[in-house]
Design a protein around this nucleic acid. Sequence first.
DNA 1: TGAATAGTGTCTTTAAGACAGTATATC
DNA 2: GATATACTGTCTTAAAGACACTATTCA
Lengths: 256, 256
Amino acid sequence: MKTIPDELFTNSDQYLRNVSVDNVIFGYHEKELKVLLQRPFPIDKWTVTGGYIKRTESIEEAAKRIAHDRTGLRDLYLQQFHAFGNPRRVADNGFTAQYLSQITGFDVPVDAWIFDYFVSVGFYTLTEFSKVDVRKSEAEAECKWWPVGDLPSMLFDHATIVNEALNALRLHIAHYPIGYELLEEKFTLPEIHNLYQTILGKVLDDRNFTKKLTATGIITKLKETKRIGAHRSPFLYKFDRKKYEEGLKTGVALVF
Amino acid sequence: MKTIPDELFTNSDQYLRNVSVDNVIFGYHEKELKVLLQRPFPIDKWTVTGGYIKRTESIEEAAKRIAHDRTGLRDLYLQQFHAFGNPRRVADNGFTAQYLSQITGFDVPVDAWIFDYFVSVGFYTLTEFSKVDVRKSEAEAECKWWPVGDLPSMLFDHATIVNEALNALRLHIAHYPIGYELLEEKFTLPEIHNLYQTILGKVLDDRNFTKKLTATGIITKLKETKRIGAHRSPFLYKFDRKKYEEGLKTGVALVF
DNA sequence: TGAATAGTGTCTTTAAGACAGTATATC
DNA sequence: GATATACTGTCTTAAAGACACTATTCA
């Protein structure tokens, strides 16, 4: 049996022990909110993107580094939402040293690092779906986007992590502007309307939505329109960067 | 020079490495919000109560255990608010192995556990001031209540931690009932009015405050009054436990 | 009866929510 | 001109906020 590769099952002095970050990467595409998941082993169970923290970086830097490794994007919008920590977190039916040895062909010891108790700090990230170049790491079997409403079977407590991230995002959206990271530079009112409906999971009256959103002053109407086929061409808008940045700091109430 | 005691500067297999909990314990007394701080060494710098996580317990259990050690209370109201993690967290002018050796009389090595990079999960706790029996641990020089508006010089990033906890509490109070843990079993309207004013740090109109609070149904008027000297006796109230518990789960909007 | 605090009601202003008809692009 | 989507204004209802007087206790 092969000896296990260091970075997989063994701690290294480079990383902190017993702490990790999990990063729920959200993307928006075709009226659907998606989340980037990876399948770390040839098991039919998925996890959110995550990894360990280097001794030289902050937890936020670790989360950004890990997101960059998977998406190729830098300076993502990052939001810490919850820390998960209990000794039974990584307990999962079938996820045993014996089973892992069997399917990976490595000699996985029962006290391998991967079975240890990890406190995981959860972040969520918003990225523009179309800009993302999904990359899987060497160790993973697969990495791809899944609709948040239709997740596959998840490893450990990762279904909970995605749900909590979504709750945090929905709560957050009521107090801070959102959309810059999820839409194209120029977008139409129906597009941002759909984004809000998708994230919040409910229908929003178009007249009231427009009224409230424009009242905040965070979007600016352009003179251009967008061709959408045999229909009236909607006007394009862009975010007012100054007001948007300010809103991220001081908060903008936008309750629907 | 004496050898250092294990539990102070050395890791033990009992605890997780590189993760800790910090617990901001709030108490309310005489129209003032107070926070329980400890002075861990004969340095004139204070910290919030905190400690390490046992391999057998969750982070919430660790936070409760630590709070119990300091206050003697069980089943405290506990709320996770933020995780703090960067390699420079514990850097603090004057907090060096040399200085610690000097003042403690122990031989503190520069690579002692205490100087390591710890990711700290921050909780805040609400307790009834009068029920608390403040206990200091062996290792500490002192442990006492401080008014949140008048904190002493704090070690590491602990001033930030208290501030973030207070922000989280203020945000939380708008969505969930609060007060059961901070007031006596029976309380008057002026008392709970003062509590809200103290936590939020602003004056609230008494008529509007009463109107909103009673509208939620979480408090019940009793037939008794409280003697307060040469003034009209205010009626006593108590929380409706059922509605209160329900509010903690589903949320109660109480925006002032 | 004076001093201090408790307790309550009304009016105004603002925001939220419900709702429907006109405009425009393409075939 | 048929069809699909964009776009906008008004009315109703609910909540927030400002504001002042009466009631009670005890010295």
